[in-house]
Design a protein around this nucleic acid. Sequence first.
DNA 1: ATTAATGCAAATTCTTTGCACTAAA
DNA 2: TTTAGTGCAAAGAATTTGCATTAAT
Lengths: 146, 146
Amino acid sequence: MRKGPSLAGIVQRLEDRGCRVTAPRLAVLAAAADAGDQFSAEDVARRVPHVGRATVFRTLKLLVEMDVLCRVLLDDGSLRYRWSRRGHHHHLVCTACGAVEDFTLCDVTELLRELTRAINFSVEGHWLEVYGRCAACSVQPVGAPA
Amino acid sequence: MRKGPSLAGIVQRLEDRGCRVTAPRLAVLAAAADAGDQFSAEDVARRVPHVGRATVFRTLKLLVEMDVLCRVLLDDGSLRYRWSRRGHHHHLVCTACGAVEDFTLCDVTELLRELTRAINFSVEGHWLEVYGRCAACSVQPVGAPA
DNA sequence: ATTAATGCAAATTCTTTGCACTAAA
DNA sequence: TTTAGTGCAAAGAATTTGCATTAAT
């Protein structure tokens, strides 16, 4: 289920960062790996009842900073986590079944270059989420419940 | 301060929608008009202490649905409201001073067309926020406090 | 009159904090 | 040892909900 780097790789990055590799962190990592394509902090917390809620949030935040996970903004405004493909990318979010697909094409910064040069705005970053119907859901009238 | 359509225009649209033009709604509208370039629900609520919190949120939601206001996702993940320029557009958010600029160029859907056709994803919408430094803040080392 | 809209206060949801405690290094 | 990391429970924010009440048409 996990799509990111190997556990060993993440552990290595934690150490490089000067972070300790603790049991709760490994548990959160394992829970995230099992939580499916995209998951909420609550989804993770539910899978590790023996780990404190705060630790779950702290660990998720750390993993996002490390670019192990990324955050996805759903159609309804709620936030989810997802294994990051490392590096800048965007999401195609299916509004019918909730599936998320990554894409890296279409460098938006590049596209914005001319525009932002015109008004003298220096782009530091951007956030783009694309909503629609995935292949499966655009065939059937309505996809999964949500 | 307000950049959207005239109050009369909004009232008209409320009526067209079958919504009543009530005193609290007008108060929220006025508060939003005075709240500056972009504001939180709390900013509006503070300006209309005589209007119930729930009504503020209900009204803001209604105004977003009506495309009178739009929502801006700030760099830190917090949500703000802003007068909408009506129709699809995006924001350039200055990470130094917080100023928000609209832009309509660079139709992302168009750019995504080829990509999404390749993987058979039908785009229904997208959300794009661009972060960086506005003209004023890219000159000075650091802009306003926040 | 009707019934949409409101106000209030409680309930939710999601996340962070304070702090004594535990365990990696 | 030392101090990063943890757990708990409480505190917060940002909204939302239930429901009796009010007011716009």
